[in-house]
Design a protein around this nucleic acid. Structure first.
Lengths: 209, 209
DNA sequence: GCATGTATGCTTACCACGTAAGCTTACGTT
DNA sequence: AACGTAAGCTTACGTGGTAAGCATACATGC
């Protein structure tokens, strides 16, 4: 069987690991886009044939899920939550959002492949504590966390979907690079303000219950 | 050139139209899933070869965008907004959500392909009026509408992502159909309550500004 | 009626993808 | 040295989007 075969007895030593595959996939994804995230391309990034990946993972979709879980887990690994649940919640949203904007090509993946609960729950444990410490029931706490989570992801989808990223699509206007950069900055500011407004509304709405 | 060639002068009469392609795509999508949404399958649904579709649309991605815009527009066509902006906003969310749950296989498409502004703006005009009538600036109104929009879409992603829909994946438990149906209903209720909670929080949060 | 122009649909072909099957290689153990 | 085992490789199949060129069916002008 593949994956997690006990290294006890012999066999050819592995050249690659699941973690390396995941890392290579993230590199390809960030640098070349979602369409370039093919088995052959990932394999060649590791100096290995495409079919060799199947010795470690059952298929392409498993790689995508591994990418999703890895990005989510590392983005929220060092979540030092503030004392209040609302502070911890906005901190979670900020960290999640930062990861999404750093990996824009991964956003559609996050949208399509749900994070494995076994990955998410431990990471969000700190967050849950702030709620229970404040006397909020677990069900309610989960609803608030997940509501902020889906809002953050949905917002990132809108932001990166509007700007497909790798493709060059502006071919008409003749403004110079300076004006272009200024325009980009204005757009970033717009999305950030929008995000903050929606997030704050949701959090204050939860406070008023 | 393809698409919108004036029907003034001659030429072979068209057997299919963009609207028919869109409708066929939605049928295939609903009945057979996103993976089945191929050029050949859409063509055969219309009694036409795959390549014939290219006479009306530039490629597969254009069909996906057409599906997105059509679903969005028809879902929100008859939005009779209540007198208050908050009522209109929750009405918008409900109509949007209803469409998403009726077309679960389309949810990933909505996530990936932004709705064309020329489609969205007229549909949401009624909504905007309620805000301006209440003295809310357009920028702020748009932020509120879009925040609710991305929350609704993000939530639907979580709901349908958890349950891939067409695939059969429950193969172990031996509970009868009755228990299964009850479980499904409980799950639906859970997601609906979660959705309502997050939506209400956001709306009340916007009211408290 | 017939030639001409034009838009539509069809056929064929190409290349890239995911992945199933079977073989080869490089280890630890005996 | 022989064997068992796990990893990697080669080959091949089916399916996808779509580029190129041909066949078809209409309106128009003679």
């Amino acid at each position: 069987m593949n994956q997690a075969s006990r290294p006890g007895r012999g066999g050819r030593p592995a050249q690659i690991s699941v973690d390396q595959i995941t890392a290579a996939a993230i590199q390809v994804l960030d640098r070349e886009g979602l369409d370039a995230l093919t088995m052959r391309r990932i394999g060649s990034h590791l100096g290995v044939a495409a079919m060799s990946l199947y010795r470690h993972l059952p298929g392409r979709d498993a790689i995508l899920s591994a990418v999703v879980n890895h990005l989510f887990a590392t983005a929220l690994a060092d979540l030092d939550a503030g004392p209040t649940w609302s502070g911890a919640l906005t901190g979670f949203a900020a960290a999640y959002r930062r990861m999404l904007l750093e990996h824009p090509n991964a956003v559609p993946l996050l949208a399509t492949h749900p994070v494995d609960p076994d990955t998410a729950v431990p990471v969000l444990a700190v967050l849950l504590e702030r709620f229970t410490a404040a006397g909020v029931a677990q069900d309610e706490a989960l609803i608030r966390i997940q509501s902020v989570g889906v809002y953050t992801l949905g917002h990132a989808l809108a932001q990166v979907g509007a700007r497909p990223g790798a493709e060059g699509e502006r071919a008409e206007g003749g403004e110079g690079d300076g004006a272009e950069a200024a325009q980009d900055q204005a757009e970033l500011d717009y999305y950030q303000r929008w995000f903050d407004a929606g997030l704050q509304a949701m959090v204050t709405g939860f406070e008023h219950r």
